[in-house]
Amino acid sequence: MREHIATLESLGATAFPVKTLAELEMADGLVIPGGESTTISKLLVNFGLMDAVRKFAEHKPVLGTCAGLILLSNRVEGALADQQLIGGLPVAVERNAYGGQTHSFEAEVVIAGEAERVAFIRAPRILDAGDAEVIAELNGEPVAIKAGNLMGASFHPEISGGKRLHRVFLELIEKMQAG
């Protein structure tokens, strides 16, 4: 989260952590960071934020990385039976598809035309990108996608200092505000 905030601020945006409804209402766009998707979804429900985030994601820009991508996806393989999702991205993903931590890796991917080295940590795999626009691929498979007001990536751009994905997200926010 801290790295996402630092990256967004280095690109000229104002960024802050969201833990409450009031903070969510102040935001023009939301980044759902990595972490454990099961943990994040439980906390969203337990702390009473799930419905508000779902509503936010219906019409405002949201970027989900790693666990965030899982939460934004309409279909998740390997989700727990009672795992609640935010949904909205018309894609299917598989949790921990690359294996446990010893199979986590770094790789160079081209994000909307620019190459960047990013980290895949216990990452989800996009099995079917559906109608979404693919904005990054790894070995021919989609690893970042965009559909309407929502964006998702299997990887973590923030911990290797990458900025490309955040730049695309900020452009999306600007475009939606202008439109």
Partner: peptide
């Protein structure tokens, strides 16, 4: 594309 496993970044990243 080459994958780099078990790098410092990946270990610290989790």
């Amino acid at each position: 594309e080459q994958k780099f496993e078990a790098t410092n970044l990946v270990k610290r990243g989790l």
